[in-house]
């Protein structure tokens, strides 16, 4: 593969790895928590982009894989004392198998019908888990204190979870890059542009789409496994939160859909913006006090609308369109 000797590919991974190492090197736990969230959002946005940006299928309910992976891994760690890494892998594989099974029928749907079906699948899964007693039903599950003991206590487990999320983020970005630059990825983009024409050119859309969906389900499931391992508690609401799915779409749009770096930039910008708004001090305008944190949803909405209406290619997409030389370095 030519990509493996491609400088921007390695540069991107090295930059992520070096930045992600900072909180560990500085021994700064609150910075580590911030970075954990950003890396998780990068995983969600990048994996959504693989199915949505490359293939053109807008998976509104992609969070279903995050929740499924999280639940299965959590259950295995809690009930069978399976090791965290193994449990996460099981969660990832289970989500991929699920994507394979539902992908075959669902990916026949196009456009809005597909988007609606993915929402339906997430809601069905959430309401099912809410009733599923082995997973704790509506209360969910939480770890016994003993679970963390195997990893040297809760503090070390937090550190381990961070290493895990860094590894998965690197893996997701690498996969996204390799797919984009491969024959497989070219086939996906042909499907995105015109599925019927792609078929006539020799592409079997059903096979490629299902495979892509299966791949794109794997990474959010790993992220879910790690996230809920760190939290020590899992509930149906946070695990299958449709809102988070849509946020991932927003990040992809913000950064530039169909690009490798777009979802990364989108995730970082979105997260920083949100936390800036939430923690911003109130603004005093004489008698009127405006608390920006109350307006964070409104501002996010206005920003999203502005992007959709005026910069549909997203930040990276816009840069690539505007400055042709950039294209070689910003995939």
């Amino acid at each position: 593969m030519k990509t493996l000797t491609n400088a921007p590919f390695w540069l991107l991974l090295v930059v992520i790895a070096v930045v992600a190492a900072a909180p560990v090197a500085l021994n700064n736990v609150s910075l580590r928590e911030d970075f954990f969230l950003i890396l998780m959002l990068i995983i969600l946005a990048s994996s959504t982009n693989i199915i949505m940006g490359y293939t053109g299928y807008v998976s509104f309910g992609h969070i279903v894989f995050f929740g499924t992976g999280g639940y299965i891994a959590f259950f295995l760690m809690q009930s069978l004392q399976l090791h965290f890494v193994l449990a996460a892998l099981c969660g990832g594989i289970a989500a991929s198998v699920m994507a394979l099974l539902i992908g075959v029928p669902v990916l026949r749907l196009r456009g809005a019908y597909f988007a609606l079906a993915t929402i339906g699948i997430n809601e069905a899964m959430r309401s099912f888990v809410t009733n599923f007693e082995p997973f704790g039903g509506s209360i969910g599950m939480f770890f016994n204190f003993s679970v963390y003991d195997a990893y040297g206590g809760a503090k070390n487990a937090g550190q381990l979870a961070y290493y895990g999320i860094v590894a998965v983020a690197l893996l997701t970005v690498a996969a996204s890059f390799l797919i984009k630059k491969s024959k497989f990825g070219l086939g996906l983009m042909a499907i995105r542009e015109d599925q019927d024409a792609a078929q006539v050119l020799g592409i079997d859309p059903a096979r490629l789409k299902v495979l892509t969906y299966t791949i794109s389900a794997f990474f959010p499931a790993l992220a879910g496994a790690i996230f809920f391992f760190k939290n020590g508690i899992i509930e149906p609401g946070p695990a299958f939160e449709l809102h988070r799915s849509i946020e991932a779409l927003v990040m992809v749009m913000l950064g530039g859909y169909g690009t490798v770096t777009g979802p990364i930039v989108g995730a970082i910008v979105y997260d920083r913006l949100r936390s800036t708004l939430i923690t911003a001090p109130p603004i005093n305008l004489g008698t009127l006090t405006i608390n920006l944190s109350n307006f964070h949803l409104v501002i996010a909405g206005v920003l999203l609308l502005a992007i959709v209406l005026f910069v549909p290619a997203g930040l990276i997409g816009w840069l690539r369109q505007r400055f042709a030389p950039v294209r070689r370095y910003l995939e």
């Binding site: 030519k2 070219l186 042909a190 050119l201 592409i203």
Partner: peptide, 26 residues
């Protein structure tokens, strides 16, 4: 029916990749 958001070269590469000879990308 051009694949509008792909370059001219990428369009033709799709044809070569998935056609009779099923060529690798390069």
């Amino acid at each position: 029916r051009p694949l509008a958001e792909l370059t001219v070269h990428e369009n033709v590469t799709v044809g070569a990749c998935f056609g009779r000879e099923n060529l690798p990308l390069e």
